[in-house]
Amino acid sequence: MSSLEQRIERLESIEEIRQLAARYALSLDMRDMDAHVNLFAPDIRVGRDKVGRAHFKAWQDATLRDQFTGTSHHLGQHLIELIDRDHACGVVYSKNEHECGPEWVVMQMLYWDDYERIEGRWYFRRRLPCYWYASDLNKPPIGDLKMRWPGREPYRGTFHDLFPSWSEFWARRPDKDVLPEVAPPVPLEQFLRGMRRDTPAPRIRVR
């Protein structure tokens, strides 16, 4: 391909992936389970030993019926990096609202996404939800254990666990009289992976 063709394909891929995240939020909130699971690769893994959209649909259906009357997902910034023509990764911020019986739970989180193009169309290969807080609208989530669902003991989220810079920042005690070193910038398509620095994915507690 010419350079112009490559640039156009890159822009088209980024926009299709961005639409993928928006479709995820809408289909989930409107409980269109078929539209929702078809955003994922046909051989999507569900748990340790199940594969396929039918298993994913069954899991999503049961989870949504058990936990929430209604939800609303509000997407924030979406960073996307192309790894090659058919693979990409990304980070999406999401502010969510949940009706949980007598409580209205507000959540702040981000998704770490892996995307794959299969037969010319982009899909989610995996979504890793990392939560900062979830708490009743009238109860600010101050403190370490910010995940506070009705009927459960509070626990810690994994919002910062993908990126080692968070713990490094708080562990460092800079000398105010010495200018810090500044690392060289990473290449354009390696910003997210550069920030992660091969940090393994944390174990996620959905609820």
Rank of each mutant, 00 (worst) to 15 (best):
S2N: 12
S3L: 07
S3W: 04
Q6I: 03
Q6R: 14
R7N: 10
I8D: 08
I8G: 07
E12I: 10
I14A: 00
E15G: 05
E15P: 04
E15R: 12
E16H: 06
Q19P: 02
L20V: 07
A22T: 09
A22C: 09
R23H: 12
L26R: 11
L26E: 11
L28C: 13
L28T: 14
D29W: 06
L39T: 03
P42W: 07
I44G: 03
R45E: 03
V46R: 02
G47Y: 04
G52P: 02
G52E: 00
G52Q: 01
G52L: 00
R53S: 06
R53P: 00
F56H: 08
K57S: 00
A58R: 11
A58F: 07
A62H: 07
L64E: 07
L64M: 15
R65Q: 15
D66P: 02
D66E: 14
F68S: 04
F68K: 03
T69K: 15
G70D: 11
H73G: 06
L75G: 05
L75Y: 03
E81G: 01
L82I: 04
L82D: 01
I83A: 06
R85V: 01
D86T: 02
D86I: 00
H87M: 05
G90V: 04
V92M: 06
S94F: 03
N96H: 05
E97F: 09
E99C: 01
G101K: 14
G101H: 11
M107G: 04
M107D: 01
M109Y: 07
M109C: 12
Y111W: 12
W112Y: 14
W112A: 06
W112F: 15
D113R: 03
D113L: 01
Y115E: 06
Y115F: 12
Y115L: 07
R117E: 03
E119D: 15
E119G: 00
E119C: 00
E119F: 03
G120S: 09
F124C: 02
R125N: 05
R126K: 11
R126C: 01
R127N: 06
L128S: 03
W132E: 13
D136P: 06
N138K: 14
K139I: 10
K139D: 14
G143K: 11
M147L: 09
M147D: 01
P150I: 11
G151R: 08
E153F: 13
R156D: 08
F159V: 08
H160N: 07
F163K: 05
F163G: 01
S165E: 13
W166I: 08
W166N: 10
F169G: 03
A171K: 10
A171R: 13
R172I: 04
P174I: 13
D177E: 15
D177Q: 13
V178C: 15
P180M: 13
P180W: 13
A183T: 12
A183W: 08
L188G: 02
L192K: 00
R193G: 01
G194F: 04
G194D: 09
R196N: 07
R196C: 01
R196Y: 09
D198F: 13
T199H: 14
P200C: 14
A201D: 15
A201L: 10
I204V: 15
I204A: 13
I204F: 07
R205C: 08
